[in-house]
Nucleic acid binder design. Sequence first.
DNA 1: GTCTATAGTGCGATAGAC
DNA 2: GTCTATCGCACTATAGAC
Lengths: 229, 229
Amino acid sequence: MTFDEFKQMAMVSMTEICREIFHEKQTSIKIKKEAVAVKNLVNIFNTALKLSNEKGFQTMSLRDLSRNTGLSMGALYSYFASKEELLEIIQDQGRRLTRKILTRQIDPNSSSDEKLCTAIRTHLYLTEVLHKWFYFSFMETKNLEKKQQKKSVEGELATEQIFIDILKQGNREKLFHVENPILTASVIKSMLQDWYVKRWKYTLRQITVDEYCNFVIDFIKSAIKNKES
Amino acid sequence: MTFDEFKQMAMVSMTEICREIFHEKQTSIKIKKEAVAVKNLVNIFNTALKLSNEKGFQTMSLRDLSRNTGLSMGALYSYFASKEELLEIIQDQGRRLTRKILTRQIDPNSSSDEKLCTAIRTHLYLTEVLHKWFYFSFMETKNLEKKQQKKSVEGELATEQIFIDILKQGNREKLFHVENPILTASVIKSMLQDWYVKRWKYTLRQITVDEYCNFVIDFIKSAIKNKES
DNA sequence: GTCTATAGTGCGATAGAC
DNA sequence: GTCTATCGCACTATAGAC
C-alpha cells in the first residue's frame, strides 16, 4: 500500500468529516441547508487549524477567524455555541477518526509482523493526510476542560494498546522478543508522533512519509526481532 | 552515575538559574538587592511554569500570576518588561542549560558506545530535574516571535547533531551499524522527548527515570549494534 | 520595593436589521 | 443565512502613593 492508495481508500477528506459533524451537531449548528453548512464548516475548520497551529488556539481570536474565513462574527456563531465548543469538536473528531481508521486497516487474522507494519504505516499515513488536525490535537489538549482531557488520555492509551497487543502476539508467535511490551509500545508511539509534531524538521530535510515509514519499521524490527529464530 | 548523583553534580537548581538571570537582565529587572530579586524570581518562574503547564502561557493572565505568587501586578513588572519578555527569558534559559550540561557531561575521548549512553542518560536526567521547564519550552515555542523561534530550532538541531556525531563515530569504530545517522538521531531524540512530553503516562505507570533510561538504551543498542562484530 | 488604582485595548458573545 | 453594532468584561501595562 502506497501513500496515494491510502488517501483514496481511507476517504478521509475534510468535506466528509464536516458532513459528519453537521449531522451530529444539530444542537449547536443553526444552519439547515447541508450544502451551505458543509461548505462553511470546511472553511471554518481549515482556517481555525491553520491559525491555531501558527500561534495557538487561545491566541487566535474569533475576530482573527472571522477575518480569515471571510465570515462575520455573527455567522461564525451559527456554527458553534462558543469558542470552547469549537475546540472540543475538532478534538473529538480527530480522536474518533484515528480509532476508526487504525482498527479498520488492521486485519485481525494476519501475523504480528504484518500487523506491526500495517499499524505503523497506517498511523503515519493518517497523520500525514490530517497533519494539521493531529498537530492541533496534540498541542491543545491541555486547554480542554477536565472531562474532555480524560477522553484524550483514553484515546492515547487505546492507540498504544493496539501496539501492545501486536507485540504480545509477536512474542507468542516467536517472531519478536519483547521483554517489556508497554515501554516498547510507548517508544514506538513516540516515533510515530514525531512525524507530525516535528514535521518542520522532516520537511526541511525533504524526507517523505514513505522514507520515514520504511526507516521506522526497519529500526523497530531490528530492535525487537527474535534473534533465535 | 545515578539520578541522585546527577542532581548534585549538575548543580542545576532553580535558585542558581534565577541568580544568573538576575545578573544578565539588569535592563528589565529594576530590583537592586540580589537576595530579594532572586527570591522573587524563583517564586515567579516556578509559579509561571506551574500555571502555564496546566493551561498554557497565553491563557495564564498576569492577574493569575499575581494571585498565585502573592506579588502585585506592579511588583511583577519590576522583574520583566512585558509578558512576552517573561516567555523569552524562560525559553532562553532552558536552551542554554541543555547545551551546557549535555556537552559538559560527554567526555570527548570516550568510545561511541559510552558517549551514546552518557548522552541519553544525561538528557533524560536533565529533563527529569527541570521537567516543568522543558515541557514549557516544548509547548510554547510557537508563541514566540520569529527571531526567538529560530533560536529554538537551532537548539533542537544542535542537540540532534550531538547524537548524529556519536552515531557516525560508532560506524567508524565498527561498534554500530547505522545506515542513516540523521533519521536514527531523530528517532532517538523523539524517545527522549517523550519522557517529559508524556510524563503523565510514565507517572501513571510508576516508571522511574532510571527504568526508562535503561530501557531506551537497550532498545536503541539492539537496533543499531553491529551484528558482524 | 511593593502597593492600589486606573487607563486603554481587545475580547467573547448576542441582538436585531436585512 | 449573514451582517453590523454594541454590551460588558478581563486583559496588559503604567503612574503615583506609601
